[in-house]
Amino acid sequence: MKCKPCGQPAVIDIPRHRAAFCAECFSAHCREQVRRAISSHRMMGHSERILVAISGGKDSLALWHILVALGYDVDGVYLGLGIGDYSDTSRDYAERFAQSNGLTLHVVDIPAEHGFAIPEAARATKRVPCSACGLSKRHLLNRAALDGGYDVLATGHNLDDEAAVLFGNVLQWQIGYLARQRPVLAATEGFARKVKPLIRMGERETAAYCVVNRIDYLVDECPMAAGNKHLRYKETLNAMEERSPGVKATFYLKFLDEMLPLLDDVAADERALVGVCGRCGAPSSAAVCAFCTLVERVGFAPGLAR
């Protein structure tokens, strides 16, 4: 195959774009996809301070690399989840990337700073691990952005992530979740603005971006995620994508264009219900936020508190 823009030998083909690319043109293509996402959804400006959530995996490191290449002022934040060797290794990848690129990485270690690890939290709250992890990440990343005085919190959610979440929400007609599934969540009292600049890139593309740019990332999957619903939805969508290239992008991007505007009132009603957590002051629709409830339950679970 030849590179569509320049005619040189290609290293990757992207069936949904009906195109193949050499390494150099592919990197430019990825940066253009991110630039378009940022621009069309007015995610952020070059004068703003951005904090990007870094896991040590392909998506977050590719995002950090691309945002720097596009000229943004970006620092990283890594959350230590306390998932044994997996957490130690992922932190190494995040720190090595920051160091080799001269970038600032903040580290928040949940076991050291909050007294629990994600596996313990999942057991104590009887949640699946990804649920305990997700709510902890949302709370602590938001806090890191606010405490650090950042204008924007950027995450590495890619097209496949968003399509899989959308698929799950549609299967159960979770109207409230659908109304909140936006590439930009505006800043409100107690919430930093949150943006997802990778929504136009599939995860095969973020992984390929890392390979061609020699970005060393943690390939292994989180051991807690094995068999989760999200992965099953991705497999289903990829089975459709293989037969009908472009179906995932159409599903998600058409949702943004055609469906989300119809849900604006639902999103506004939900925002009106948000109050303040009585313990930590974070925004919450309950008297005590989900994170403080989780911390409390871990503390009261015999043998789990540290």
């Binding site: 290293v11 990757i12 083909d13 392909k58 995860e203 390979v211 989180c222 989760n228 999200h230 991705k234």
Partner: peptide, 25 residues
């Protein structure tokens, strides 16, 4: 250490890595 496209032919002397890209987080 280089990506290859789907139409490429692989030979007996090649060392290949099949790297998964799906993550569940």
């Amino acid at each position: 250490d280089s990506l290859v496209t789907h139409d490429e032919t692989l030979h007996d002397s090649d060392v290949i890595e099949i790297r998964p890209v799906i993550s569940g987080g």
